[in-house]
Amino acid sequence: MSVAKRIIPCLDVDKGRVVKGINFIDIVDAGDPVEIAKKYDKEGADEITFLDITASHEGRDNILGVVEQVANEVFIPLTVGGGVKSFSDVRDLLSAGADKVTINTAAVANPDLINEVTDKIGRQCIVVAVDIKKSKEQYNVYTHGGRHKTQLDAVNWCLECQARGAGEILLTSMDKDGTKEGFDNEILSEISNKLSIPVIASGGAGSLQHLYDAISQGKADAVLAASIFHFGEYSITQAKDFLRDKGVFVR
């Protein structure tokens, strides 16, 4: 028996408020991170990811307050990312109550950061977010929220992250993100099969079948989704029931 496949809703946070049209009828304040996190916990979310998309430098400290408030009320693993640049950023988020921190651009710019966090705090708390896009010959890694193309090959980069001590890989297909066409299961399974650390699939979820495909074909250990849950198309409970009916081990 293995460990349960995880379903992870992802919330975008701007200046301390959840944005991107959360659409729950039974929530009074749709921008309140605590209320939304509570709701997802109740529905059976296995973990919650907060992505800080605050553009301005001054607004960045808000995320610490959000993490702290949520961690005081919601007792499931919390992952936080967006704009994390240094070891002290990671440490501040963990002290505020995050269990894991995702790093992306900073990991590419300074891969030693992965080793530093792993050596000082342990590998379970560092998730490397890898944004990828297919070109003719390979999948390239992108940074800066998908604006900068690097020459890093997705598979090699994920292997390097693992060797440096990353605890998990959050793999986002930029080709699929926002399309609702399903995850890129080909590259997902290739990377998942080559790694010994868990891979979280992200980008493209449009239906419950897509979640299933990412697990069965893409060999994902967890699936992260935003819009299909936020807009109330499906609840986490429905997603779990669907996967369970298909024989997937879920909580």
Binding site: V3, D46, I76, Q124, E168, P198, D221
Partner: peptide, 29 residues
């Protein structure tokens, strides 16, 4: 994969007050 990370079933082996109101097999992190 190692670490064993995520939710798995905890199978109670003892009737004890510590397990009060928790189903005999339940998920923990």
């Amino acid at each position: 994969k190692v670490p064993h990370m995520g939710w798995n079933n905890v199978e109670q082996k003892k009737d004890h007050a510590i397990w009060s109101n928790i189903p005999r097999t339940s998920f923990f992190y």
